[in-house]
Write a protein that binds this DNA or RNA. Sequence first.
DNA 1: CGCCACATTGAAGGCAGTCAAAGGTGGTGG
DNA 2: CCACCACCTTTGACTGCCTTCAATGTGGCG
Lengths: 229, 229
Amino acid sequence: MSASVLGKAPIFRGLGEEELRQVAGVAVRRSLPAGETVFAEGDQAQGFYLVLKGKVKVFKLSPDGREQILRTVTPGQQFAEAAAFSGGEYPAFAQALTNCELLFFETERFRKLIAAHPDVAMGMIVAQANLQRHLVQMVEELALKEVGARLAKYLLDLSVRRQRATGQGDVVRLPMKKTELASRLGTVSETLSRTLRKLQEADIIAVKGSQVRVLDRERLVQVAAGLKL
Amino acid sequence: MSASVLGKAPIFRGLGEEELRQVAGVAVRRSLPAGETVFAEGDQAQGFYLVLKGKVKVFKLSPDGREQILRTVTPGQQFAEAAAFSGGEYPAFAQALTNCELLFFETERFRKLIAAHPDVAMGMIVAQANLQRHLVQMVEELALKEVGARLAKYLLDLSVRRQRATGQGDVVRLPMKKTELASRLGTVSETLSRTLRKLQEADIIAVKGSQVRVLDRERLVQVAAGLKL
DNA sequence: CGCCACATTGAAGGCAGTCAAAGGTGGTGG
DNA sequence: CCACCACCTTTGACTGCCTTCAATGTGGCG
């Protein structure tokens, strides 16, 4: 049953058994295979999704086909809330990266849920706040930093997260294909490749496949802060 | 009294007299002169602000001092909600562009307000959703479009808004200094200047000071969509 | 009238995207 | 187990947009 996963989702954290059952009651389950499109930009938005299992990427496409990943959504997180509550159309594309189990919340039904459960409203507000932080950071990095700095920042974030999870943060594993990482960083695979090499040649990191070892955290921090390579 | 303005703010729309009084009760008034800093990046965030009068800019600074404006906030809108609900520090700077009257909502008190008034929660969620759309659009434009397209888009938005307000959308007035517009568009004043000139030379617009006349809306739309100049 | 901030223009250089091709890698089926 | 294929990654050469630096133009205001 999805209730157990539901209870772990930040927006439903702290709800009781009975309440979770109500939440599950207004949602519709949807499962789809890797590669499938969840929705396309411009589609009519009738609600938002919560990921139960798998990974979903949310992205924009440029006129000439380049892709900018806005975020990748993992279990417990929701996406397309903005579209659902700001009305109209989805402002981006969403595609399953792996086989996925999703919950779909129709806007109106969710609205009623909120009216009855302020906790859920608060959870949603907090989740949106976190997403906003993420977006603000992307804007900052795209506008003000070059690819080297964005990559360094990304590697540091990864390393810190790994540190917390396993107590060992010097070796990280890139959680996606490099092409995808490139579009997450607002660049293309060729440039990412060159930038990784420059960091290697400066003895700041060592790369083997998708394993990255941090050799000189000090300087990696400097690069992330804007120091040129 | 601020209650009348409050009632017009999107997040408090639809509240009754009595409720608005409660809302006003948890807020603190703060007025400050043009140029004053509301908060700096890194300051401890204890709540968010609603603008009653004036204009506030929210922006990031790069290591070498370049400025990226995230948004300008006008009466009835709030800012720093993300910081307030996602905890910790303000992720950007905020500065008064004109003399301002602000309302400050302390996070905990607002939280209680929400618990009692689902309508307010919903208003906040919708407001955040709108902001998210705005941020997503900025990311898209910074990552995928060049300066010409961003400028064209900006002019069109301005023109549409003027159309709605005055029924006459062909002549618009840039609402800020060009240097500032440049940083809103993620570039510098020199580039903005050149880009305006290119649009002029293509007979798409006519510029006189901060007056811009749209001569060929058709092609302006194409440029906004990514057509090279 | 002259100052000052803002705006414009020119020249030069760099970062990053595109195109093209070669090298790797993993997965599948024989 | 190996060979093949598709896809990803890397590398090189080139181009172009945009930033930087520097100098000149301009408009408002005391």
